[in-house]
C-alpha cells in the first residue's frame, strides 16, 4: 500500500514539454558523455554506467559484462583518466557489435535467378514499411524488384503493401485476405521468373514467436520457394523493433531456430529507444545485423555499422545513422 501511494504521482498535462523533448532524445548519450566528464575514475562511475546501459535496453547480463570488461582494462592499463575509460568503453561496445557483422556473407545476385528476401517478425515491428525501404534500396542499385503480399491475415495488409508498391513503381503479387500465403508465394515465384525480376521481397504476417503453428508455416513458405530456386530464400530478414526490451533476444532466438534467419534489421531507431537489444543479439546469436530503420520514408534505411551505431546512439558523435 505504501508503494501504491508513493508511485501514484499523477502529473498534469504540461505545455512546457517542447524543451524536454530534445533532452529525451539525447538523454542517454548526453549522460554517458557527462559521466566521463569528471576528474577520476571511481566506483560511482561504474555504477552509473551500468544504470545507463540498462536504461538503453542493453540488458542486465550484457551491461554487467561490459562494465566488468571496462574495469579489467582500466586496471590493466593503469588508466586514471576518465576520457581514456570512455574510449575503452566505446571500443568494447563496438567490438561486441562486430560479433554481428563478422558472419555477414557477400550476397551474389545471379542473372535470371530471382534473389528472394523473406521478411519476418512479430506483430507491429514495421515489416511492411521495411519492405518498401528494401525495395528502394535494391532499386538504387538498378535492380528490378517485385513484392509478394504474403500477409494474408491482417486486415488491409495487402492494400498497405500495394500503396507502397505504387509509390515505388514496383509490381505487387497479391491474392485476397484470408488466402493461403503459400499460394501467394508460389505465384510470386513464378511471376518473378517469368518477368525476370532481380529481387523478390516476400511480406509475411506478423507472428509472435510463441505461436508454434505460425512459426511452422514459415518453413512451409521456404519449401515452396525452393521448388523454384534451390537456395531461396537467399535472405531471411528478421525485423526487430528498437523499442523492444529483453524479449527481443527471445524473438531472435526463436526465429533463428525455426526459419534460419540470415539477417536482422533494427527498426524504428528514429524514436527515443536506443536499440540496446542489438548488443545481446550480437553476443548470443551472431546472426548478422545488416540494416537499421530510421524513419517512415522509403529512403530511411541504412546499413548497420557498429561504429556508427555506438557513436550516434550512445556517444552523440557523428552525423547520425
Amino acid at each position: 500500500m505504501v508503494l501504491g501511494r508513493l508511485f501514484r504521482r499523477r502529473s498534469q498535462p504540461d505545455a512546457q514539454l517542447e524543451q524536454g523533448l530534445e533532452k529525451t532524445r539525447r538523454g542517454v548519450f548526453l549522460e554517458i558523455t557527462r559521466l566521463f566528464d569528471r576528474s577520476t575514475i571511481d566506483e560511482e562511475l561504474y555504477e552509473d554506467l551500468e544504470m545507463l546501459l540498462i536504461q538503453a535496453d542493453v540488458g542486465w547480463d550484457v551491461s554487467q559484462k561490459l562494465v566488468a570488461e571496462l574495469r579489467a582494462r582500466v586496471a590493466r592499463d593503469r588508466s586514471t583518466v576518465p576520457a581514456e575509460a570512455r574510449e575503452i568503453l566505446r571500443e568494447e561496445m563496438i567490438s561486441l557489435l562486430e560479433l554481428a557483422t563478422r558472419n555477414r556473407k557477400v550476397k551474389i545476385l545471379q542473372r535470371g535467378v530471382p534473389f528472394v528476401v523473406m521478411v519476418v517478425g512479430v506483430n507491429g515491428v514495421g515489416k511492411t514499411t521495411t519492405i518498401a525501404k528494401l525495395a528502394a534500396y535494391h532499386q538504387r542499385f538498378g535492380r528490378s524488384v517485385m513484392l509478394a503480399a504474403g500477409d494474408t491475415f491482417r486486415a488491409a495488409a495487402i492494400d498497405q503493401l500495394k500503396v507502397w508498391g505504387e509509390r515505388q513503381g514496383v509490381p505487387v503479387i497479391a491474392h485476397h485476405q484470408g488466402a493461403d500465403p503459400g499460394a501467394v508465394v508460389f505465384d510470386a515465384m513464378q511471376a518473378a521468373h517469368a518477368r525476370g525480376a532481380d529481387v523478390l521481397i516476400v511480406d509475411t504476417a506478423g507472428r509472435l514467436q510463441t505461436k508454434h503453428n505460425l512459426m511452422a508455416e514459415l518453413s512451409k513458405l521456404r519449401k515452396i520457394m525452393q521448388r523454384h530456386v534451390e537456395d531461396a530464400p537467399q535472405e531471411v530478414l528478421l525485423v526487430i523493433d528498437a523499442t523492444t526490451g529483453q524479449n527481443g533476444l527471445v524473438q531472435a532466438k526463436a526465429f533463428a531456430d525455426s526459419v534460419d534467419i540470415t539477417d536482422i534489421m533494427i527498426a524504428k531507431l528514429d524514436g527515443t529507444a536506443k536499440g540496446g537489444i542489438a548488443f545481446s543479439v550480437a553476443k548470443e546469436l551472431g546472426t548478422p545485423i545488416s540494416y537499421v530503420g530510421t524513419g517512415e520514408r522509403a529512403t530511411d534505411l541504412a546499413e548497420f555499422k557498429p561504429e556508427t551505431y555506438v557513436d550516434s546512439l550512445f556517444f552523440g558523435v557523428g552525423d547520425g545513422l
Binding site: V122, T243, G245, Q246, K274
Partner: peptide, 10 residues
C-alpha cells in the same frame, strides 16, 4: 506493447 523495454516510461 507488452514487449516494450526501458523507454516505455518515457
Amino acid at each position: 506493447d507488452a514487449m516494450t523495454g526501458q523507454e516505455a516510461v518515457g
